[in-house]
């Protein structure tokens, strides 16, 4: 960390870069995003990476679908928070259901982020659905599908007028010996009229989050 008093060592890094681009010495040599030598420092124990290399596995959207089964298997408990109904296309039942209801469901590639590759069935054109059907049949394990969630809207200043825009809430929890939930969160807002895509990489914005009571 460069400060006016000189360089100061940091203890923990929360990274926002994919593994492949994290350190050109170790991973993708072409990466301009990463920090050369980061993995050396990490191995020596000089710095910790909060979302360690390899944790991208948990980002796979199919993991989400398996969460209730993972909880049951490892803890022999029922989940407290219910999942959104998620159809796993690598399983025949899930694929059949998805193909039969393509125009009602939101279909997502499991390995993407930032809202890329997501097809919102009720808003897709016939051509888009046709293409999606072909992709699903070719590579079913790359997809999950979920019912379309009706996101809330919030008044948003657009130019000189206030208009409704869709929002979602990202809560944050830290789990160790105990679990702590941040009394706040990240409210993301879709800036385009009618859009449900709140991802910042696609022009989404943020809103203040108020926790009452």
């Amino acid at each position: 960390m460069k400060t006016t008093a000189g360089k100061v060592a940091v203890h923990v890094i929360y990274r926002r870069i994919d593994d492949a681009f994290l350190d050109p010495e170790v991973f993708n040599k072409e990466s301009m995003l990463g920090v050369p030598g980061l993995m050396r420092a990490y191995r020596k124990g000089n710095v910790n990476i909060a979302n360690a290399v390899g944790t991208g596995v948990a980002d796979d959207k199919a993991i989400y679908a398996y969460m209730p089964r993972i909880i049951k298997y490892y803890l022999d408990q029922d989940p407290i928070l219910q999942n959104v109904q998620t159809n796993i296309c690598r399983e025949k039942e899930g694929l059949d259901y998805t193909l039969a209801h393509l125009d009602e469901l939101v279909t997502k590639p499991v390995g993407e982020s930032g809202g890329y590759g997501v097809v919102i069935g009720p808003r897709a054109t016939k051509k888009e659905l046709r293409e999606l059907r072909a992709l699903l049949q070719k590579q079913p394990d790359n997809y999950i599908s979920q019912p379309m969630i009706n996101l809330s809207v919030t008044p948003t200043l657009i130019g000189r007028a206030v208009e409704p825009r869709h929002v979602d809430l990202r809560p944050f929890a830290v789990t160790g010996d105990s679990t702590w939930v941040l009394p706040g969160g990240l409210t993301r807002v879709a800036m385009k009229r009618g859009s449900l895509v709140v991802n910042s990489s696609q022009g989404g914005g943020t809103k203040d989050t108020w926790v009452l009571g």
Partner: peptide
């Protein structure tokens, strides 16, 4: 406490 270089700039 120290000030980040870029904020100083």
């Amino acid at each position: 406490s120290s000030l980040l270089t870029r904020f100083a700039e």
